[in-house]
Design a protein around this nucleic acid. Structure first.
Lengths: 69, 69
DNA sequence: TAAAATTGTAAAGCCAACTTGACATACAAA
DNA sequence: TTTGTATGTCAAGTTGGCTTTACAATTTTA
């Protein structure tokens, strides 16, 4: 899975800390998400998409067996 | 969070077991999701939405503090 | 009504999402 | 050089998504 979190955050001129406070998660969570260390919960994915005014499926790009076959 | 999984599954004339096999999860997982016992992972939410030909945000309805404030 | 199909409950276990905290690196400005 | 801001690593702990197994209840169909 790829994510455009970093790109969209920078587009909106936000720091990791600002984003983390807006979403009420730790800054470490933002770092890890941007680095692809793990995948967000559905709720967090939704809040991220809301923040960036886009659909979840625009913010996260699913690949291979993350799609149905 | 509310979900339309059950409604969409029945619309498509699928049993819980058929759906679980298509998504490669346990039937118990489908039961628990339909009953609202827990929230799916992002990947599973995506596969469900794909199965039902809709966006994640159409299949799951976020409420209250599941939205940004 | 009896059999079969579908849906449901309960419980124990694994692993990943997320947290907290402490510290490191890089860069810009004073 | 020193200070401040932004980003990063590491590690240990908690929680909850999902699994498996076994069995019970409900609905459908013959």
């Amino acid at each position: 899975m790829k994510t455009l979190i970093r790109e969209k955050r920078i587009e909106m001129d936000m720091t990791q800390e600002e984003l983390s406070k807006k979403l009420k998660v730790s800054r470490q969570t933002i770092i890890s998400l941007e680095k692809g260390k793990y995948k967000p919960s559905l709720i967090l994915a939704h809040k991220l998409a809301q923040t960036f005014n886009c659909a979840i499926e625009e913010l996260f790009i699913f690949e291979g067996d993350e799609n149905i076959e």
